[in-house]
Amino acid sequence: MPQPLADVLAEVRELLLDPGLTRAVAAGRRRGFTPSVTRAELRPVTLKAGARLQIVTDDGARPTTRNVVPGPEAAEAVDSLLAEPFGNWHIETASSTVQVRITKKGDAQIHRASASRDSAAADHDRTKQWLLDPGDPLFEVIGGNAAKRRQIDAFLRALEATLPAELPPTLRVVDLGCGNAYLTFAAYRYLAGRGVSVEVVGVDVREDQRVRNSAVAESLGCSDDVSFVAGTISSASLPFEPDLVLALHACDTATDEALARAVGWSASWVLAAPCCHHDIAAQLKGRTAPAPFGELTRHAIMRERFADVLTDTLRASLLRLNGYRVDVVEFIDSAHTPRNLMLRARRTGAAPTSAQLSEYASLVEEWGVKPALSTMLPS
């Protein structure tokens, strides 16, 4: 529930000046205000001169580092930062993590996570095991059974491996074909926990999903940052061009629509877990396979499985031709879902090589197929 901002900032001040502080990050901005710096990070350090509180601020051009003496000097520096209209605070101590988000109305939403076991080592193991704390309020809303926690954790690990260690101060995310949006919310909770300002939009064709997901965002206290629109993947209107595009289990050519929009936006990062590969399978049916690969498509079940592989191979190839580095990885163990492949892409802007162009051309020519994605990409 929202709390008075002054009360929450007083608690934040105590944590920032406490000897048990491990790290703190302030980022984002409150509605209608702009801080003098885009990001601030605080951590205790030990120098030759003794213990200091290190404060690194970034004005968007270059970082500035100060090492202040604990006591009145540190208190004055902390008070100056708390007076800035940051939208988010993330504080880590030896025993807890506190996340604060300032709402549009100027109140504060606060989430506290602390050790649930007596042993610090046991807490370390638990933190290492799950990227999103099993005690996070998200699991109270969506349910926290073991299978769902494993899928969320596998997704977040893929996300962690895709993004750089240092994120931009504001990260804009779209989830295309978000469905019931539990992975959308998981991405938000994880990214917000990394101390950056996160804006998320989920897109789904069903209006009832938009209404349901918006209600969940309200219950989690993140409706200022996480919103939903009803519309198709190819035409839904967004309030921004995203940095990160998610398309998780979008069916058949809906995955191609999502990848095409990501390329059109020049999104920096893309995570897509394809589902239901009908398009290429239909093109292969009744077509003679090039020699000596007739056995690959002679039997229906083999043809369908090969079509899955060929479809995603061509998708990865087309992303490379459009300036992305692509990894094809396992999303989650096939014991949990048979749709367990993920395309993980980072934009490099590199022009395609002649070898890459030749390989793609040979694939489509030999198999006599035309990938849906090739018809959707910006010309």
Score class of each variant (00 low, 15 high):
55 I>S: 02
56 V>Y: 03
57 T>N: 04
62 R>E: 10
62 R>S: 14
62 R>H: 11
63 P>S: 09
65 T>Q: 07
66 R>M: 07
68 V>A: 03
69 V>N: 03
69 V>F: 04
70 P>V: 00
72 P>A: 05
72 P>S: 03
74 A>F: 07
74 A>E: 04
74 A>N: 05
75 A>E: 14
78 V>A: 05
79 D>W: 05
80 S>E: 15
81 L>E: 02
84 E>Y: 02
86 F>H: 08
87 G>N: 00
87 G>P: 01
88 N>D: 12
88 N>K: 08
89 W>S: 02
91 I>H: 02
91 I>E: 01
92 E>K: 08
93 T>M: 05
93 T>Y: 03
95 S>R: 14
97 T>V: 15
98 V>I: 10
99 Q>I: 11
99 Q>D: 15
99 Q>C: 07
100 V>Q: 06
100 V>M: 00
100 V>N: 06
100 V>K: 01
101 R>H: 15
102 I>A: 07
103 T>F: 01
103 T>E: 02
103 T>V: 00
104 K>W: 10
108 A>K: 01
110 I>P: 03
111 H>E: 15
113 A>V: 05
113 A>M: 09
113 A>P: 00
113 A>E: 14
115 A>R: 14
115 A>T: 03
116 S>H: 14
116 S>M: 11
117 R>L: 12
119 S>V: 04
120 A>T: 13
121 A>P: 01
122 A>I: 10
123 D>N: 08
123 D>Q: 13
123 D>I: 06
124 H>W: 09
126 R>E: 14
126 R>T: 12
126 R>N: 07
127 T>K: 13
127 T>W: 13
132 L>H: 02
132 L>M: 01
132 L>W: 07
133 D>M: 06
133 D>P: 07
135 G>I: 07
136 D>I: 02
138 L>H: 08
139 F>S: 02
140 E>Q: 13
140 E>H: 11
142 I>E: 05
143 G>D: 11
143 G>F: 06
144 G>N: 03
144 G>Y: 08
145 N>C: 02
145 N>P: 06
146 A>S: 14
149 R>T: 07
151 Q>L: 06
153 D>P: 08
157 R>M: 03
157 R>S: 04
158 A>C: 10
158 A>H: 13
159 L>W: 04
160 E>Q: 15
162 T>G: 00
163 L>E: 11
165 A>N: 12
165 A>F: 05
166 E>K: 14
166 E>G: 01
166 E>A: 15
167 L>I: 08
167 L>F: 06
169 P>Q: 11
169 P>F: 10
170 T>Y: 01
171 L>E: 09
171 L>R: 05
172 R>A: 09
173 V>K: 12
174 V>H: 04
174 V>F: 09
174 V>T: 12
175 D>R: 09
175 D>S: 12
175 D>G: 06
175 D>C: 04
177 G>I: 10
177 G>Y: 02
178 C>V: 12
180 N>Y: 08
180 N>I: 13
181 A>N: 01
184 T>I: 04
